[in-house]
């Protein structure tokens, strides 16, 4: 599974990245996590409010930082 955290590097983006790795650890899902900070690439996902979470090229969250449980649910669903 490929996970991308989209965000130019604001505090919320760092929180989202941390919660994502927590959720990965909690669910035992194995995945690569990539940070995307390039604006053109962020925009190409159609994301206008950061941070955003992309799982296998699908935007699943944008503009807010979900709780670890919620990220875990998103990870195990796909």
């Amino acid at each position: 599974m490929k996970i991308k955290v989209l965000g130019p590097g604001c505090a919320n983006c760092a929180t989202l990245e941390k919660r994502t790795s927590d959720a990965l650890a909690a669910t035992g899902v194995s995945a690569t996590v990539e940070k995307v900070t390039d604006f053109a690439e962020i925009a190409s996902y159609g994301v206008m409010s950061t941070p955003a979470l992309v799982i296998d090229e699908q935007v699943v969250v944008s503009g807010r930082v979900p709780k670890v449980d919620e990220i875990g649910a998103l990870l195990t669903r796909s």
Partner: peptide
């Protein structure tokens, strides 16, 4: 709802 760190992605969008 819009934070200043979204100014650029928002602008592009």
């Amino acid at each position: 709802p819009f934070c200043s760190c979204s100014a650029v992605p928002g602008f592009i969008g």
